[in-house]
Design a protein around this nucleic acid. Structure first.
Lengths: 256, 256
DNA sequence: ACGCCACGAGTTGTCTGACAAATACTGCCT
DNA sequence: AGGCAGTATTTGTCAGACAACTCGTGGCGT
C-alpha cells in the first residue's frame, strides 16, 4: 500500500514567496500587525518587500488559507481575528510542551527502553513486517515533580540501529527533537486518537494513583514528510492534568 | 473587547479561483485524482478549466496549504498522500455527522428548550451582558435508537426572537443548518475543550446509564465569519460511542 | 561496458503590465 | 441632512515572457 513517495530534495533554495509568507506571518505573530489592521495595498506591499505583486499574492493566498488574513475585493486585506488557544491539540506537539505551556516544570521519572519483536497491531500502525524489531521507550512525565502522563513510544529499531545510544537520550529529551537533529527525520503530521478510560493496575502503579481513576488515553501515529509512519505513541494522561482544546473548522464551507 | 468586525457583504459573487479550488478539491476527494497522481502542467490545466494560469495558481496554492497537493519546481504538481480520518474532530462538525459517519441511524429523544437569563460563565463565552436572555436547547442524541450524547446548546435569544418557531425545529435538525439557512449565520470555526469525567446523576439519567460511568465531556464555542461568538455547546458523550481523532500538524515547520 | 557530463525538453517560480470587478469616498444636488 | 452619481482605490483576473529547477537522453572518454 505505501509507496516510497517522491524523493524530496532536502535543502533546496528557499522560494521567494515562502520567505514573504514567513515574514508576514512573523509580523502578525509578534503583534506588529494586530488583528483588524489593514495591510498596505498589494502594489505598495510588494514594493516594500522587494517582490512582484504575483509573488506577494502567492504568500497572501497561503496566509488567507491558514486563517491569518482576510481579503476583500475592492476593500483591502485585513489581519483576521486569529485564534490563539493554549495547548491546542492540532498545533502543539509533545507532552513536554504542554507541561511548559501550563507554566510547570517538565521532567521524567523511571524511564526505560527495550527492543522487542513488533507486536501485532503496531506492525500495522507502523507499516512493518511482523519479523522486524521495534524500540520501545517508556517514560513517566512529571509536572512539578508530580506524575501526570505515562507514555510508551514505539519506533522501528532499524531507524536507531546505527546510533543505539540515542535511545538513552530519548528518555530525557524530546523524541521529535532527536529524530530531527540526529536522524534527519522531520515529523510532518500525526493522527491522534483518544478516549476516556479507567486506570488499570499497571497504569495506576506508574502514575501513583488508585485503580479506576479517570484517564485520557491518547494513541497517536506520526508520519514523516514523505508519508512514511515513523513513531507510534500510547499516552495515559491524568484527567485533570491538562486542558485539551481543538480548533474545529466550520462545517464544510470553503475558506475563501 | 470584541468589536464588530468589518461588515462582510454576504452573498458576493463567487471568485473564479475559488470555483477552481472547489473543482480540484472535489476531484481529489472523490478519488478521481488518487494520491501520487501527477497533475497536468499548469498551462494545460488552466486551459482545461478555462482560466488563466494566475487564477489556477491561486487555487493550487490554497490546495497546497491545505495539504492536498505538493508542488515541486521543475518536476510537477502531485496529489499528496492526504489524510482521511473518520470523524476527525478538526474537520467534522456536529454529533449527527459523527453518528452517520459510523454507519448508524441518528435521532433525537426527549428534546426540550427554554429561555432563561444568561448564566454566569455563558455570558463570557458568548460575549453577552448578564441581563440578556439566552435560548437553551437540550437534546439526547441517539445512534440506532440508543442514547449516546446529551447536549445543551446555548445561543443568544435575540438571534431567534424574530422566528421563535425555529427553536422547535432545532430539536430535530442540525442547529448549524438552521443558523445558516434561516438566519444567514455561517459558522466559521469553533473551539472545543474536552476532558474525561464521571457521569453525575443528571447525565446518567438522561443517557440511561449508571452514575459514575465514563463520559467524554466536550464544551465548545462556535464563531461566525466575523469572529462573533454565536453558539455555546456542552456535550456529554458515552465513552465508547465514537472514535475521536485529530490530525496534528508537525512541530513547527512551515507548511510550504 | 561503464561512468561522467553536457545538453535540452518540460515544469514550476517570478516578473511585468494591463484591464475588470468590487468597494469606499467625495462632493454635488435637493 | 440625506440621497445620489461619479471617481479613486483596491483586489481579482488575464496575457506573455523569462528564470530556476528537474529529469531524462545521448555523447564522450576511459
Amino acid at each position: 500500500m505505501r509507496r516510497g513517495g517522491h524523493r524530496v530534495g532536502r535543502g533546496r533554495t528557499r522560494l521567494r514567496s515562502s520567505s514573504v509568507h514567513d515574514e508576514l506571518s512573523q509580523r502578525i505573530g509578534e503583534g506588529r500587525l494586530p488583528a483588524g489592521t489593514r495591510l498596505p495595498s498589494e502594489p505598495d506591499l510588494a514594493a516594500e518587500l522587494g517582490v512582484s505583486r504575483a509573488t506577494l499574492r502567492e504568500a497572501l493566498r497561503a496566509l488567507e488559507t491558514e486563517g491569518l488574513l482576510r481579503r476583500m475585493q475592492g476593500s483591502g486585506t485585513f489581519v483576521a481575528d486569529h485564534v490563539r488557544v493554549r495547548n491546542s491539540l492540532d498545533l502543539n506537539f509533545g507532552v513536554t510542551d504542554a507541561i511548559r505551556a501550563a507554566g510547570m516544570n517538565a521532567g521524567t521519572e523511571g524511564g526505560r527502553h527495550w527492543i522487542e519483536p513488533t507486536p501485532t497491531g503496531e506492525a500495522e500502525r507502523l507499516g512493518l513486517d511482523p519479523g522486524q524489531d521495534v524500540a520501545v521507550i517508556e517514560r513517566v512525565r512529571t509536572a512539578d515533580a508530580k506524575p501526570v502522563v505515562l507514555s510508551r513510544d514505539i519506533l522501528p529499531y532499524e531507524l536507531v540501529r546505527p546510533h543505539p545510544e540515542l535511545l538513552d537520550e530519548m528518555l530525557q529529551r524530546s523524541i521529535y527533537e532527536i529524530l530531527e537533529r540526529d536522524l534527519g527525520i522531520v515529523i510532518h503530521h500525526g493522527i491522534a486518537n483518544f478516549r476516556p478510560v479507567h486506570a488499570d493496575g499497571a497504569v495506576a502503579g506508574h502514575l501513583g494513583i488508585a485503580r479506576g481513576e479517570l484517564i485520557l488515553y491518547l494513541s497517536q501515529v506520526d508520519y514523516a514528510e514523505d508519508g512514511a509512519p515513523v513513531l507510534s505513541s500510547h499516552e495515559y494522561h491524568l484527567a485533570d492534568a491538562f486542558d485539551y482544546s481543538v480548533v474545529r473548522r466550520g462545517p464544510g464551507r470553503r475558506l475563501t
